[in-house]
């Protein structure tokens, strides 16, 4: 088993005819992802390499049985795309788009509450389950099927970590980029909960960064609810306060969100904290060996 994506996943790509949407759809198809439809309002009736394009998400659900959506629409239209996917009953929405205003995300969180939809992102690299496929833009070659769950707030740093694991022969059950915005659809806790329940996952790598209190909240959750070993790194120890470090959510403000506080909270919770990101892979290897012995 894996989390979020599996052999029953039928993906619809919202914004499939755009340059990002079409490029990454093709990349995901190379990885055997089951992309069953695309949606671009006004382009219904056309196709992308034989993948039918519809005007509305509900058409993709009714005609193609879509149950997962990847959203590539520009920021100004992304909230509308998310609401449409929720309304159509899509079970898993992955929003890759960057630049959604916080005020819109507050509304999105309201719409998600009580719906049957789980959302990942926005401003994230998406989800990859090796052997099943991907929604998003993690590079195809970095992954390997295995037993480590990866969850992270960033993009290239996550690829780097996955690639380290793969280089050591350690595969991944699923890798999830939850996104770098202040408010995201699913947080660390949501994904940790899934990895904890997933029989395939034996250890978890959690990559955090400065800003907010998501890592502190996750530490509390890990202490009481997670039995599997968690290895963690936090990016941004040298970041100055009050500056937005690329990601909208990566900012130390009001004396909160510094890396040291997060490292401390994780250490207290019994997490294997690794301050040198070049050593994450080896640390995981060591822990897996120890638990196998």
């Amino acid at each position: 088993m894996t989390i979020l994506l599996n052999e029953k996943s039928r993906v619809v790509v919202q914004g499939i005819t755009g340059s990002e949407g079409s490029f990454h759809t093709r990349e995901s198809v190379k990885m055997e992802t089951n992309v069953v439809a695309g949606v671009t309002p006004g382009k219904g009736g056309t196709d992308l390499d034989g993948i039918p394009v519809y005007n509305r998400v509900s058409d993709a659900v009714e005609k193609e049985g879509a149950n997962v959506s990847g959203i590539y629409t520009p920021a100004a239209f992304a909230p509308d795309a998310i609401f449409e996917a929720i309304e159509a009953g899509i079970g898993l929405v992955v929003c890759l788009t960057e630049g959604l205003p916080v005020a819109e995300m507050i509304k999105v969180k309201q719409a998600l509450k009580g719906s049957g939809t789980r959302m990942i992102g926005p401003n994230c690299p998406g989800i990859t389950t090796p052997g099943v496929g991907k929604v998003g833009f993690m590079p195809n070659f970095i992954h390997r099927i295995g037993n480590v769950g990866v969850v992270s707030r960033s993009g290239t740093l996550t690829y780097e970590m996955i690639w380290q694991l793969t280089g050591l022969g350690i595969g991944q059950s699923t890798s999830v980029g939850i996104g770098g915005d202040p408010i995201v659809g699913s947080g660390f806790i949501d994904i940790l909960e899934l990895f904890e329940k997933d029989p395939q996952t034996e250890a978890i790598v959690m990559i955090g960064e400065i800003g907010g209190t998501a890592e502190e909240e996750a530490a509390e959750f890990i202490q009481t609810q997670v039995t599997k070993p968690v290895v963690s790194f936090i990016a941004g120890r040298t970041a100055p306060p009050g500056r937005r470090m690329g990601h909208a959510g990566a900012i130390i403000s009001g004396g909160k969100g510094a890396a040291e506080e997060k490292f401390k909270a994780l250490e207290r919770a019994g997490v294997f904290v690794e301050k040198n990101p070049a050593e994450i892979g080896r640390r995981v290897q060591e822990i897996l060996k120890r638990s196998a012995a």
């Binding site: 290239t156 740093l157 780097e160 990016a235 941004g236 040298t238 990601h247 990566a250 070049a278």
Partner: peptide, 17 residues
């Protein structure tokens, strides 16, 4: 000079380390 915000922050951290 780095590609990606998370990796850019991490690179700063490594320089300091």
């Amino acid at each position: 000079m780095v590609n990606g915000a998370g990796l850019a922050m991490t690179t700063m951290d490594l320089i300091k380390m």
